[in-house]
């Protein structure tokens, strides 16, 4: 991963913004987010509720249309397209290469369809001429791959527990042989022991199928476990983006530092000193001037109040903070915590 090879970049998110407007009020859910995704890696996107991470994910898969920006995607055929501006016809063959796994395993499966129909739906839509036998064979293969008992395919979703439902959702996302999967809080609704099963499954599948994940979650320990790189979002902006271990060990943005210090670690001996954050997340309809974080930042200077920092490279990492170079912030001490 250390050597940057341009040809490996599969997805370039460039200046993506999303503005929701209703009744004359504009809410900027996502503002000018850019990052690159390389083939086979996992990008974690973390942040607190309302930071725009889910909206960003939905913009990338084009479940909703972004207001601005481009998502340059390198297709399986090798050409680079702007995924956000393709029309319906151009979209059809490419859409299947970017898929999504949802948070709620209950609302993401249509309760009125059998598992066979749910997993097979994408095939029917994209390869309507495929014979039934062949399709069912394919469904069985993919179901076995995600650890579903293939004798249960005629059942309806209500027969399955949350973890198994999530496997069905994964099978549905995988059956079109996608390159990129956006996992929107894919394990957050599951119990701890089931979470581990699904995380392991996602990792195994990634290795086997060379998948690329964009893993959106509020759970920092899960993200740290699964991601190669992590992007931290605050109030619609990406404030820091970099390799996981570096970012967790020595954050460069004060918000990342505060966020990390708040994570409860499953070890009674680890007592982190929390860095208190003043106030609350501002209303995205009425964001503060300058750096969005300045009101709550303990390193705030005058410049932060007036001038919004751009995402720039510091120490092999992208940070949006005026003082990123000079501050030395605290993260997790990896050597101490063995």
């Amino acid at each position: 991963m250390s050597e940057i090879r341009e040809k490996d970049v599969i997805l370039q998110v460039r200046g993506v913004s999303k503005v929701f407007s209703s009744k004359g009020v504009n809410v900027r859910a996502v503002t000018n987010v850019s990052f690159d995704v390389r083939k086979g890696e996992t990008i974690g996107i973390v942040g607190e509720s309302g930071c725009g991470k889910t909206t960003l994910g939905r913009c990338i898969v084009r479940a909703i249309d972004a207001s601005e920006g481009e998502v340059i995607y390198k297709t399986l055929a090798g050409e680079e397209v702007n995924f956000l501006t393709l029309d319906k016809k151009q979209m059809k063959p490419i859409r299947k290469e970017i898929q999504m796994i949802f948070q709620d395993p209950y609302s993401s499966l249509d309760p009125r369809m059998t598992v066979l129909d749910i997993i097979g739906e994408p095939i029917r839509a994209n390869y309507p001429k495929m014979p039934k036998k062949e399709r069912e064979q394919l469904i069985k293969e993919i179901a076995a791959k995600v650890g579903l008992n293939t004798t249960y395919l005629m059942r309806y979703p209500h027969a399955f527990s949350g973890g198994q439902r999530q496997r069905i959702g994964i099978a549905r996302a995988l059956i079109l042989n996608p390159q990129i999967i956006v996992c929107d809080e894919a394990v957050s609704a599951l119990d701890v022991s089931i979470q581990a099963q699904i995380i392991n499954l996602l990792r195994d599948l990634q290795k086997e199928l060379e998948l690329t994940y964009i893993f959106i979650s509020h759970d920092l320990s899960v993200v740290e476990h699964i991601s190669d790189k992590v992007g931290v979002m605050y109030l619609g902006r990406m404030v820091e983006f970099g390799e996981t271990e570096k970012l967790f060990a020595s954050p460069k943005h004060p918000y990342t530092e505060a966020l990390l210090s708040a994570v409860p670690v499953a070890d009674p001996d680890v007592k982190m000193d929390r860095i208190p954050l003043q106030g609350e997340i501002p209303n995205p309809a009425n964001p503060p001037s300058g750096c969005y974080f300045h009101e709550r930042c303990r390193y705030c200077t005058e410049r932060c109040v007036t001038e919004a920092p751009e995402l720039h490279e510091v120490d092999g990492r992208m940070v949006a903070c005026h003082r990123a170079e000079e501050l030395s912030l605290r993260g997790f001490n990896y050597d101490e915590m063995q």
Binding site: V61, Q99, S107
Partner: peptide, 21 residues
Amino acid sequence: EDYVTAARLAGVSDLKIITKH
């Protein structure tokens, strides 16, 4: 509903989404 979004992402046509989901 998420399952409708999922169907859209899988490339299912609008008419099919209406009649099937």
